[in-house]
């Protein structure tokens, strides 16, 4: 008999026990482990997916912000460029104006300074001319400048034009006016007396004469009376001298055709009389 029924029953029991044992020690643990791992992997995948979506959102947001920032930066840059250009133009204009004003003020200052220097030179030249003339006359001719000037003045007084003589005479001889004799130097009493006599003689009547010393006076001597002024000046000499000095100092001007100074400049002993009548 190939079948032993006791063995069959025993094997059925054995198999059922084996089913229980393998269920307990094999299938359940392994399947549970697989389930746990699958759940964990699914969770990790879901997390990764969520993170990826989040990252995508953040990336989009960042890109949008970046774009907006770029646009804003471009706008600001353009505005800043325009502002800077306007400010540059404004500052340039301001600097130009300031430079113009400064140039003008310097020009004015130079003109003023030149005028002052001119005046100072004029006075100094006059003083020097008088000093040289005085010394030359004294050394060579044993004559006093003041005396010679007074003499010449007296001679010129006698030869003044008749019209002026009439006008001055009318003003001085009515007794109300005083003839003011202004000179660049003090006239000695003798010369003052001689001049007084000459006036009296010229206008045929006693004339009130007052002498004043004005160091700034360019001319040698002048008369002021009745709103009239009569002077013998060395203005023309000084003008020629100034032209000569300018020619030396300014070569361009020197290149121009030279103008011959009047002979009076080079002939100090015979100054040409200049008559001028000016209203005060």
């Amino acid at each position: 008999m190939l079948i032993d029924w006791f063995t069959v029953g025993a094997q059925v029991v054995n198999f059922l026990i084996l089913v229980w044992l393998l269920k307990r020690f094999l299938y359940k643990p392994v399947l549970n482990a697989i389930d746990v791992r699958e759940k964990r992997i699914a969770k990790e995948l879901a997390d990764a997916d969520a993170k990826q979506k989040q990252a995508q959102l953040e990336r989009d947001e960042f890109a949008n912000k970046n774009k907006a920032f770029d646009e804003q930066r471009g706008t600001l840059l353009s505005k800043a460029t325009d502002d800077a250009k306007a400010e540059h133009d404004r500052l340039l204009q301001q600097a130009r104006k300031a430079a113009d004003a400064l140039g003008k003020s310097r020009h004015d200052a130079l003109i003023t300074e030149a005028a002052q220097l001119n005046q100072a030179l004029l006075q100094r030249t006059q003083l020097e001319v008088f000093a040289i003339a005085r010394k030359t006359l004294n050394d060579l001719a044993d004559a006093s400048l003041e005396e010679r000037v007074a003499d010449v003045f007296i001679r010129r007084l006698a030869t003044i034009p008749p019209a002026m003589k009439t006008t001055l005479g009318a003003a001085l001889t009515n007794g109300a006016e005083t003839a003011v004799i202004r000179s660049a130097f003090d006239l000695p009493h003798a010369q003052q007396a001689a001049i007084q006599d000459a006036f009296n003689l010229t206008f045929a009547a006693p004339v009130k004469v007052r002498f004043e010393t004005v160091p700034d006076l360019v001319s040698g001597i002048e008369i002021m009376a009745g709103g009239q002024k009569l002077g013998w000046t060395i203005d023309s000499y000084l003008g020629s001298l100034r032209s000569g000095v300018d020619d030396v100092l300014n070569p361009k001007a020197a290149a121009a055709p030279p103008t011959m100074p009047p002979p009076a400049v080079v002939a100090p002993t015979a100054p040409a009389p200049v008559h001028s009548v000016a209203a005060p």
């Binding site: 190939l2 079948i3 032993d4 029924w5 063995t7 069959v8 029953g9 025993a10 094997q11 059925v12 054995n14 198999f15 059922l16």
Partner: peptide, 12 residues
């Protein structure tokens, strides 16, 4: 290889 075992399994 025993018919008893295979019979037992078949009965199961």
């Amino acid at each position: 290889g025993s018919l008893s075992t295979t019979a037992a399994l078949a009965i199961c």
